[in-house]
Every structure is written in structure tokens, then in C-alpha cells.
Amino acid sequence: MPLPDLSGIHKEEIQIPTRDGSSIRALTYRSESSIKSGELGPLFVYFHGGGWIFGPAEAAEGNVKALAEKSGIVTVSIDYRVAPEFVFPTAANDGIDAVKWLAANAASVGADPSKGFIVGGESAGANVTAVVTHEAVDAGLSPPITGSYLRIPYLIHQTAVPDEWKAHYNSYNDHPNEPILSHKDLDYFESHYKPDLKSPYFNPLLWPSGHKAQPPTYFQISGLDPLRDGAFIYEHILRAEHGIPTKVDVWEGIPHGGTSFLPMLTVSKKAVGQTEDGIAWLLSQKK
């Protein structure tokens, strides 16, 4: 597979301090032309997937060039700490700490959150994203997050689904042995991350203060994903119950992670443009 074209993009590694006195690696991506002009761009903070046990910060590179060139976006991809060395809730805490630090130090990476402050991620990274956006609302983060991007998100454990949602949560039982993410894979990830299966820091769909103040949210959902229905339930809650703007792209017949692990598929190539359009939509929703 060809590496992403990063010509004209300045890539830099930074360290972000964490609450336990350590620091985590992050990669920043911004256009070289914006550096020359001194123009600050919207901020996009990204959390990679990988079941809380693997995945590089470089996973964001498929879209950073187009985002920088089309919207002037500065992408910061967070290399949060992973299991088994760092178990739950380290990934969630690292995500919260990273976004708080970037909110206070955005200019140092060439960003201006007043032009847009988007947080997003894939799979486990989308789980971290949802935790971060809820924590930010509760804490009154300033500047506020203006958009959330949830790509094939993990939002609730199958044993934690409330009774009122169970009739709408069928994907886990319907897709036990799909490629890329099966029940065995989920069990493996959980055995290493060691989450509290009742905690909202693992199940952001159960956030105690609710979801009414969440930012506009863009969803990408795979049809053969055992996690699929958690995303559909959350999208319904945001849009139908709280009037929060949402945008949804559904990849029918595609397993969890299929557009990332199988880039040669037509749907995977289409997903690159959909992501760019979805992020642009989130920017357009900024109040």
C-alpha cells in the first residue's frame, strides 16, 4: 500500500503532559503555507483505533493533507498509552489530558480553536473521543469542542445495554464471527485493557449527566460491525431526543475496520472523501 502523500505538510512530534507526571507523544500536521503566512487554522484532535492495545498516531495521515489544504485544519494525532502496560482508564485519561492541554496551548501547534475545535477517532479511539467530549462538557472546557467525529465507535459494552435499548441492540449477536472484529477479538482486547464494564469511561453512552450539551456529531458506521447498533442508538439520542445536529455515513456489507484494513475496496476509497466532507460539515456547524 502506498504511503500517504504529505508533500506540503509540516509534520512535527510533540510531548503532552499527563496527570500522572508523565507525557504522551503526539504528531501535529499543518500546511507549510500556513506556517509561512502565520495563519492559524481550526484544530482537529484525533485518536487512533486498535482496541486500546495497539495503533500508531500515524493512523491519521490518510486525511491530513486534504484537511489542511481544503480547510486549513491543523491535525494533532494523539499516541495515547495502551494496554497491557497501561490498563483502563489510562487511554481515557490521556485523551482528556491531551484535549485540555491543546485547548490551552493550541497556538503552539498553529491552531485557533475559535475557528473550529473538532475531536474524533476510530473504534477504540472513538470511544476515547466520546469520553472526552462528555468530560469537556461537564468541566466547561474553554474554548469548547465544536464537533465530534465517531468512526465505527465503541460506545457501550453488550452487558451494559439498558432494557429500553435492548430491542434496538442486535448487532452484537447478529455478527459474532465477522472478519477483523469478532467476539473473540473483543474478548481479547478487554482482557488486556481490563475495563470496568459498568463505568461511563468505558460506556460513554451511559454518561451520568446525559448527552444534551454534546456538539454536532458525524458518524461513520459499518453494517457488519458487532458494535454498529450502539452508534445508531447514540445518533438517535442526540438527534431525536436533544436536537443535536448529526451526519451519518453507513457502509453496508462492510465489517468493523474494513475501510481501514482493506483500502483497495471501492467503499474504502469513497470513505476518504466522505471523511473530508464530514469534517467540513462539522466545521460548518460551529456557532
Rank of each mutant, 00 (worst) to 15 (best):
H192P: 09
H157R: 07
A106C: 13
L186D: 15
N203A: 04
K194L: 03
S142T: 11
K194S: 09
A213R: 03
E122H: 09
F86C: 10
D196A: 11
I145D: 01
E190G: 01
V109F: 08
I78T: 04
E190L: 02
A130R: 04
I118G: 07
K166A: 08
Y154D: 14
H134S: 05
I96M: 01
D185M: 10
Q214E: 15
K100Y: 02
D79K: 10
P195H: 14
G210F: 08
E135S: 10
K100S: 03
I96N: 02
G125F: 03
V82D: 05
V87S: 14
L205H: 06
I118T: 06
I78E: 00
A106K: 04
Y80H: 06
I118V: 15
P113N: 14
V161G: 08
I180S: 09
V132F: 00
W165L: 10
P153I: 03
Q158E: 15
H134K: 08
E69F: 11
G210K: 14
P176A: 07
S123N: 05
N105W: 01
H192F: 14
T75Y: 01
V76G: 09
D79M: 11
P179I: 05
L206A: 03
Y172M: 09
S77V: 00
P208I: 10
L186P: 02
Y193W: 12
P200M: 05
D187V: 00
K184E: 15
V128Q: 00
D185R: 03
I73W: 05
L205I: 07
N203V: 03
A126D: 05
N173A: 15
A103M: 07
P179C: 06
S114K: 15
I118A: 10
F189A: 08
S142V: 03
S209W: 04
W101H: 06
G140M: 08
D97V: 11
L155D: 02
W207I: 01
I78N: 06
G147C: 04
H211Q: 09
V128M: 00
N173G: 13
I152F: 13
S191W: 04
I156S: 11
D138R: 07
A107E: 15
S171F: 00
A126G: 09
A92Y: 00
S77G: 07
A111W: 00
F117N: 08
N127Y: 01
